[in-house]
């Protein structure tokens, strides 16, 4: 493989996806004092943001998004929870929701943020529901919405918005 081929989206995309999976955990650990300060529970979801960019900037012509989403979900489950299924479904569900809605929204920043909002909400709701299946849910709906969903949306929407144009030009460059 020649060097210039390494700078193609189909190579860079999965490498960064894998990297962001670990960055999420490291951020949660390093910023734990802020992210999990009682009563807040804020999740960094950079992995999902990266998948959102793939949907929003139509990367699926070059990258097998479904395959990568499933693989990253399995890896997430294996490394972070040890219980298979929850996050695989959450990632697939979020990507499915974003892909469905992508047809109705355009490429402007605000449309993009709406799309990501839908994806992230789907993701969080699936993880919340999964907690009930194995009986480990110990937070009521209102607390979940107030202390987890709201701040998580806020943090990740800001990150996604800040990186929107840089990532857009990166995708252009890599094509």
């Amino acid at each position: 493989m020649a060097f210039w081929q390494l700078t193609r989206l189909r190579v860079v995309f999965p490498v960064l996806l894998l990297l962001l999976l670990f960055v999420d955990g490291d951020l949660m650990s390093a910023m734990g004092a802020i992210f999990t300060a009682f009563p807040w529970h804020i999740l960094p979801t950079l992995t999902l943001i990266w998948l959102f960019y793939a949907v929003q900037f139509d990367a699926d012509s070059e990258v097998p998004i479904w395959l990568y989403t499933a693989l990253i979900g399995v890896l997430f489950d294996m490394y972070y929870t040890g219980i298979f299924g929850t996050y695989t479904v959450a990632f697939l569900g979020a990507v499915a929701a974003m892909k469905q809605m992508h047809a109705y929204l355009d490429e402007r920043l605000l449309s993009g943020m709406t799309l990501f909002l839908i994806g992230l909400l789907t993701y969080l709701v699936i993880t919340y529901a999964a907690g009930f299946i194995i009986g480990i849910a110990n937070v009521g709906m209102v607390s979940f919405l107030l202390y987890e969903v709201l701040p998580t949306l806020l943090l990740n929407l800001v990150i996604a918005a800040l990186a929107y144009y840089p990532v857009w030009s990166l995708f252009q460059f890599l094509r």
Partner: peptide, 15 residues
Amino acid sequence: VTISRSPTTWQSQLV
């Protein structure tokens, strides 16, 4: 040393 923390809704785990 903590190397990671699960960014998950439930099951807060450290690695």
